[in-house]
C-alpha cells in the first residue's frame, strides 16, 4: 500500500489544513470531528532548503537535506530533501518513507527528490 501524508478539509467551508487542527482556521467551525481526511499531492516546487550538519543521535548521517515544498494544491509542507545540488523553485516529487527512527516507532513522512 502506498503511504500518504494527510491534509484535513473543513466540512463547513472546505479549507484545507496541514498540519492537523481541531478548529478550522478559516471559519472557526467548532464541532468535533468536522474534518475530512484528504491525502496531499506528491508533486510541488522547492521553496527553500538547507543541509543540516549537526543532527540528533537518531539520524545516522553526517548531513541531512531539509526543505519546504509548495505542493500542487498550494499546501506547503516540510520534508527531507534527497537531492545533491538543489535549486530554489525546482520541481520535486515526494515519497512517503521512514524519516526518523524513534525508540519505539519508525516515523513516516515526505522525502523529496528531483521530479
Amino acid at each position: 500500500m502506498e503511504r500518504e501524508v494527510n491534509a484535513y478539509k473543513c466540512r463547513k467551508c472546505g479549507t484545507l489544513h496541514y498540519p492537523f487542527r481541531m478548529v478550522c482556521k478559516n471559519c472557526r467551525a467548532n464541532d468535533y470531528f468536522e474534518f475530512d481526511i484528504e491525502p496531499l499531492p506528491k508533486r510541488g516546487k522547492l521553496l527553500t532548503f538547507t543541509f543540516i550538519h549537526n543532527l540528533p543521535a537518531q539520524f545516522e548521517v553526517a548531513r541531512l537535506g531539509l526543505g519546504i515544498v509548495e505542493l500542487e494544491n498550494g499546501i506547503r509542507v516540510t520534508g527531507q530533501v534527497d537531492i545533491e545540488d538543489p535549486t530554489l523553485g525546482m520541481d520535486v516529487v515526494g515519497n512517503v518513507e521512514v524519516v526518523r527512527h524513534d525508540t519505539y516507532d519508525d516515523r513516516y513522512g515526505f522525502v523529496f527528490r528531483a521530479a
Binding site: 543540516i52 531539509l66 520534508g79 527531507q80 526518523r100 513522512g109
Partner: peptide, 12 residues
C-alpha cells in the same frame, strides 16, 4: 520528525 532543528529553520 524530519530532523528539523532551530539552526535548520534559521538556515531555510
Amino acid at each position: 520528525i524530519y530532523g528539523v532543528t532551530l539552526p535548520g529553520h534559521a538556515a531555510m
